[in-house]
């Protein structure tokens, strides 16, 4: 199957510092991809590059064959890629409902996601629709951030470090909503430091270290030792 989203020798710089060195990944229709790696491996930089927050060569990133590497973040979103950013980044001035609504600010797509369908998978948000977004618990805030990203009905949903700072039981609840998201058609890319969690939900896994992809494959193909080597760069 042709990939819907690909990166081709993707590089990224912060001033003189090079953060990505020729990263190639493919995401196919309906797939869940997990990107794992230690702190500083370049996972979040990869997400920022794909979403247009870091500019790149036009053909370094393609969506359905179209080069999108040089597009701005709003243009990338209009073409169907949205992101749940690391640390959730809800807007404190806005209510829960307004935080969701702004997700469909420029693109509402033709998909199934709207306020009602988001409230369907997370009913508590409907109850708290008038609360300030940042007054919810960490897990609920994360669900608002996911709902906000879904409101544009993306073809590819990128999730950066969903489990950061959350209790294991909350993380489990968040990932429990993923099958419902997937069955409505989006491909999902999850950046995750928790290897066990990533292995459970992913169809394929990419492991990154120091700005490079060091390992890729289906979870059942990868041995513990391979992952350990690729994650830390040393044999266990």
């Amino acid at each position: 199957m042709e990939p819907i989203l690909s990166t081709h020798g993707l590089t990224a710089h912060y001033g003189d510092f090079q953060a990505l060195f020729g990263v190639d990944i493919d995401v196919r229709q309906g797939e869940t991809i997990a990107i794992i790696g230690a702190n500083g491996a370049g996972k979040s930089t990869l997400m920022r590059a794909i979403t247009g927050l870091l500019q790149n060569a036009p053909d370094a990133i393609t969506l359905r064959g179209e080069g999108i590497g040089a597009l701005s973040a709003p243009e990338v979103l209009e073409r169907g890629i949205s992101m749940v950013p690391e640390g959730r980044r809800l807007f404190p001035s806005l209510s829960v409902e307004e935080n969701l609504l702004i997700g469909g600010h420029t693109r509402t797509g033709n998909g199934v996601w709207n306020l009602e369908t988001v409230y369907e998978i997370v009913p508590i948000l409907k109850e708290r629709r008038d609360h300030p977004g940042t007054a919810l618990s960490g897990g609920q805030q994360q669900m608002v951030a996911i709902g906000r990203a879904l409101m544009s009905n993306p073809d590819v949903l990128l999730c950066d470090e969903l489990s950061l700072g959350l209790a294991p039981v909350v993380i489990k609840e968040i990932y429990a909503s993923f099958p419902k998201i997937k069955e409505r058609g989006a491909s999902v890319v999850v950046v995750e430091q928790d290897i066990g969690q990533a292995m459970k939900i992913a169809d394929r896994v990419y492991c990154m270290m120091e700005g490079r992809v060091t390992l890729q494959g289906r979870p059942d193909e990868l041995s513990r030792e391979d992952i350990h080597n690729a994650y830390f760069g040393v044999a266990s």
Partner: peptide, 21 residues
């Protein structure tokens, strides 16, 4: 809708850009 975008920009420009503002 535009005002929400403006407030979002004021709260966090990068997050606002990533939701399409």
């Amino acid at each position: 809708r535009m005002g929400l975008g403006l407030q979002a920009l004021r709260d966090n420009e990068e997050a606002a850009r990533s939701v399409g503002v």
